[in-house]
Amino acid sequence: MADTTTTEAGGAAFEAAPGGNAAAGANVAAATGDSGDRPVKIIGIVCNWCSYAGADTAGVGRFRQPANVRLVRVPCTGRIDPLFALKAFEKGADGVLISGCHPGDCHYSEGNYYARRKFELLERLIHHLGIPKERFKWTWVSASEGQRWQKVVTDFVAGVEKLGPREGRAL
């Protein structure tokens, strides 16, 4: 219901809207101020053959890692529709982590080659939506890389925690 003057060109509607805080990082402060006490929730979407097994390896190896990530197992990163990540944000996830087999190692030979093109565009458009880049990551972790999984999760969760939980956003 914000009041703005009539725009002349169609494009002008996309310029700064009232309600957006001009001060950089204001949303971070607001979000952390609002509900800084809630642990961040992160959706991890991982392929069955590498990253899910890699997470398992990390568990079996008893590598300490934050418990904020809920994993969704899919057959292959090629199965991941960009909708999954957007849906997670819509449903209130504070961060989305996507991981699969290293290029060349795909169980189905080429699923992740297709996937990485999509993920790259997804990442760019998630930033375009105004979701800070710390909240979305896609990477490769193989079944044997328990330590790498630990590092990926630890770093990602730390990045999201720095921003705090996301509240009151449409997407």
């Binding site: 219901m1 009041d3 703005t4 009539t6 725009t7 509607a13």
Partner: peptide, 16 residues
């Protein structure tokens, strides 16, 4: 009310 050149029924607020 007219917003961004589009007229729609919206709740009235003082000053609009």
């Amino acid at each position: 009310f007219k917003r961004d050149g589009v007229v729609q029924f919206e709740p009235w607020q003082s000053g609009k």
